[in-house]
Amino acid sequence: MSTPTHMVEMRDVCMQFEEKKVLDGLSLKVAPQERLVILGQSGSGKSTILRLILGTLRPASGSIFFRRHEITRLQRGRLQRVRQHIGMVYQYSALLSSRTVSENVALPLEELTDKSRSEIDKIVDEKLELVGMEDSKDLLPEELSGGMRKRVALARALVLQPELILLDEPSAGLDPVIASVIDELIITLTEKSKVTSITATHEMDSAFRIATRMAMLYQGKIIEEAKPEEFKQSKNPVVAQFLSGSTEGPILEGTLDAITKK
C-alpha cells in the first residue's frame, strides 16, 4: 500500500448502519491548507465522513489516513494522540453544559498539555478574543445564542493549534448575517493558522464562501469534485439539481411520486 502524501486520504471506504449503506466505496483526498466543503443531502453521510476521519466511527471496509497515520488501524492510545492534531466543531456545538465558556476552551489545554494555569488563561483569552467572545467567558453554554456557541466551539477546536479542522454544518440554524460572520471567521482563522479544513454542509451560500474545493456526496460516493467556480458550472445532473434546489431531477426520483401519492 502506497504512503499517503495528502493531509487526509480516504480509500474505498464503506460504512453502513445496520441495513442502511451510507458510504459505498468512497475515496477522497484533501491537500494541506485546503478548505474542502463536502456537499450532500441531509442524511447522505457527510457527518459520518467527519467522524470516520476523527476515528470515532470505524468503517466497514477501506482505509483512512491522516498524514501518515492510518486512523482505521490505530490503537486507542495512539488514536487519542493523533486526535490532538484534529479540531472538531459539531453541528450543535457540543459544549460541555456544566462548564463556562472559558472552562470549555481551556479543557484540552488542561487535560493534554503541561501548561501552567497562567499560560492556559492567556491562550484561552487569546482564542476567545479571536472569535469575539472575550466578554462572555464566564457564561454557561445555555446562556449563549446558537452563533455564540458556534464561535466558542471554534475557539475550542483551535486551542491546541490543530493541523486539520472538521466542521459539521457550521452555519446551520443561524440567521444569514451570523452565518456569514461564522464563515468569515472560519476563513480568517484557517488562513491565519494555516489549518486545513473539511466542512460538511448543505448550506450553499456558506459552502461557496468557505470552499477552495468542493465535493458532492451522493449515494455513498463522491460524484463530483471541483473548485467552486467549476463546481457551479457542473454538468452532472445531481449537482445541477442540488445547486438549483429544483424538485425535478435524479435526486428525488421516485421519492416525490411517493410523497404525492400519500
Binding site: R51, L54, T56, R76, Q80, R81, V82, R83, Q84, I86, M88, Y90, Y92, A94, L95, L96, S97, L107, P108, E111, L112, R156, L160
Partner: peptide, 22 residues
Amino acid sequence: GTMQVNEEVEAIEAMGIGPLRF
C-alpha cells in the same frame, strides 16, 4: 446519558481526552 445525547461525550473523545478516565 444527557452528555451522550448532546454529543458532549463524543466531543471529549474527539479532543483526544479519554472519556472513561475523565
